[in-house]
Structures are given as C-alpha cells and as structure tokens.
Amino acid sequence: MNTQDPLSIGIVGLGNIGRYHAEQLTSLMGSFDIELSGGMDIAPTARDRFESSFGVPTYEDHEKLYETVDSVIITTPNRYHEEYAVSALESDINVLIEKPIAHTIESADRVATAAAASDGVCMIGFHNRFASPVQVLKQYQQQARFGDVHHIEAKYIRRRGVPGRGTWFTEEAASGGGALIDIGAHAIDLALYILDFPQVTEVSGVTRSIFGGRPDYTHLEMWGRSGEGPFNVDDSASAFIRCADGSTISLDVAWAANRPPNNEFVVQGNDAGARLDLSDGDLTIFESSSAGAPHFSDSEVRTRDDDPHRIEQQRFIQASRASEAPTVNTVEQALTVQRVMDATYRSNERGRAVKIDSEPLPTVD
C-alpha cells in the first residue's frame, strides 16, 4: 500500500451488519484518509442493494474484491469467517472480523495462525469495549479505584430477541451456536476486558434451548427476518468462569426469557464496585468511607453518546495505516473468548466443569 493513497476498505458480507459498517465508514471519510472501495456477497440481491446505497462495485468472488483493497471488514455468518479472513491475511490484507473470531475453536485457531504469519493486521469486532461508560470504567480499574477486582456478574438477557429464526443465526452448522456465541461472546469479552484478560482455568456451564424452537414463540420484533431453516442452537446459557488469579465471572445470557431484559455488568472490588448498564449507558460507582463519619457514596457517571462501532473502526484504520498489530481487540483475546465458549458447551455436554488448557496462543507480531 502506498502510504500517500487513501486506505481502501471493502466489506465482505453485505447484510444488515455489513451495511451498518459501510455507513459508519462513509461517516469517517471526512476525518480519515479512507475510501469504501467495494463489497462482496454471494447473494445478488445483497450486492444490488449495496451498490445502490453506496455507489461502489460489488463482487460474488472475494478474491476479486481483494485485488482492489488494503483492508476488509468481515461480517458474514460465523462459519465463513475463517475462509475469508485467512485468504485476506495470506494476501497481507488487514482484517477486522465481526465477533466471534470463528464458529469453532479449531477454526479460530487457524485464523490465529494465519494472522501470526501475515503482514496484515487482524482485529476482532467486540465493539462494546469502545462505549464511553466502558472506557470510564476501564480507566478507573486501571487507576486501581476498585482495588483488586475479584468478581464480575455479566448479564445479556433479552425478553424476546431470537435473531432471524430459521436463518443462519439458529443453524448450528453456520453459526457454531446460539445465544452463547452471539450475545454471550460480547458479555464474556467485556468481563475479561475489565479483568485485564487473566488466564481462564475452568468453566462450568449449562446451555438450554427452551423458547426459540416453539411454534407458539411470541415476539414483538425480531432482528432480521424469519427463515425456513432449523432451530438447533441454544437460546440461553449460564456459566461460572474461574481464572488463575482467583477472579471469577458469573455469566447469564439469553435470547429469550420470561423476565425483563438486562444488559448489566456488576464489578466487585475490595475497595469499590460498579454497576454498568449497557442498554442505557448508566454507570454507577459504589464506595464506602469512614471519613467524617461512616458512609456510603454512590457516584453516577454521565458520558457522551459516542457510537462504539465508529470508534472501533477508527482504531482499525489507525492500526491498518501504521501496519502495526492493535493493542486492543486482539486475536489472542478473541481466542480466549472462543475457548470459554467452547468450554461452556463441553461442560454442558459432560455435566461437569471443564479445565481450559494453558498452552500458549499464537504470537501476532
């Protein structure tokens, strides 16, 4: 890539998420020297809609797109992340993969191996890290305001929110799993991010499929459209995650539940704690002191409503332009998330806790 030329970026997978990424990229063109150069999808209707919306060429073959771009954002069904990411990385193209890194742990390992050997940078799209209240919480944690954080409650629960019943979201072969691998990946990543990604040693988990396959499933709205395919994935999961430093995470995720929705993270430290509600951006810090008189102090934090996807893209653009591996949303961290999800599924199958191997991850130079 000529550093004097705009950074050319393509989108692989032109569905709802792909179009959303394209919209964010176009909004950044005035601030960054970039261009949306094209897109790729196997569906003609998706290509036609993308061309009409963004005025760029689209391709049925990803290799043709890769001849025209410096970087790609991959937003396909999980099963195809490996194919498109490895092909790009082998051509030294920079890659941003929408979470998860892949649909299975074996596939994720192959992406990591390709990233380690590539001159292109690779970043994984866990955008919630870039939400303003999350960044405030993380800064306070780094400043030791909470002391030693020993436990995090991580919840991502929808009352009715099965995405696209009968589409790739609910077909295990294409997705790799259901609620756990979809929204659970976000919850696991954010909890581990707050804890500075300690080594995970053991996972005890249960997955369930209760609502999604029922013919009387009642909902008010749905992400995407219903399809005619199977529903053979989990729609909820609970897990307890142990780390080598003694910290723990309790995880509760669901696409559907007979309860109010909840996207809450509760941080417990020995000096202070916090409650973060990602659904509305509320962040409260809980502290106590004997200064003057014994008392509790609850501090509400207000932040600007910045779009975390745009900030994530900015970091990807900066890493791509500098040809330097990002220090956030790394392949290594995404592999840890994938291993926790894999261990949760295995724990459910075996009916007992599963140890996670501590073998070193591939190094990304």
Rank of each mutant, 00 (worst) to 15 (best):
N232M: 03
V253L: 15
P215R: 12
H150M: 06
G147E: 08
T218V: 07
G176N: 09
G213K: 04
C243T: 09
G184S: 08
E202Q: 14
Q142T: 14
T167Y: 10
E202C: 14
N232F: 11
A187H: 07
A254K: 02
T248R: 04
W255S: 00
A244S: 14
P133E: 09
T167M: 05
G161R: 14
L192F: 02
A256M: 05
G246E: 06
I183A: 05
E171A: 12
R225W: 01
Q141T: 11
T170D: 06
D196V: 05
K155Q: 10
W255I: 06
D189N: 10
R259Q: 15
A244W: 05
S226T: 12
G184P: 04
G212D: 10
A131S: 10
A187Y: 02
V206Q: 11
A173V: 04
Q142M: 01
N258F: 13
I157P: 09
N232T: 09
G205P: 01
A257N: 07
Q135A: 14
R129Y: 07
R160E: 09
W255K: 06
I188T: 07
R225I: 02
E172C: 04
V233T: 01
Q142N: 15
P163F: 00
G184K: 11
E172K: 10
E202H: 11
L220E: 08
D189W: 00
E172P: 07
T218C: 02
A257F: 04
L190Q: 09
Q141V: 15
G177Q: 05
A256E: 07
V149M: 07
I241P: 13
R158K: 13
I157M: 06
F169N: 08
E171G: 00
G147S: 08
G246S: 03
Q141W: 03
L251S: 01
A256F: 07
A244T: 10
A131R: 10
S226V: 10
T170G: 12
V206S: 09
M222V: 09
E172V: 14
Q141M: 14
V136T: 13
R160Y: 08
A244E: 15
T218P: 01
S238F: 07
F231Q: 12
V200N: 00
Q142V: 04
G178W: 13
I188E: 02
D235R: 06
L220W: 11
W255M: 04
A187R: 01
F197V: 01
D216W: 00
V162D: 01
G246Y: 12
I157S: 05
D189C: 01
V253C: 08
V200R: 03
F240R: 04
R225N: 11
H219Q: 00
D234C: 03
R159I: 02
D196F: 00
Y156H: 09
A174S: 13
P230W: 10
S175M: 08
G147Q: 05
R242C: 14
H186V: 00
Y193E: 09
G205A: 14
D245A: 10
R160M: 10
N232L: 11
D235M: 04
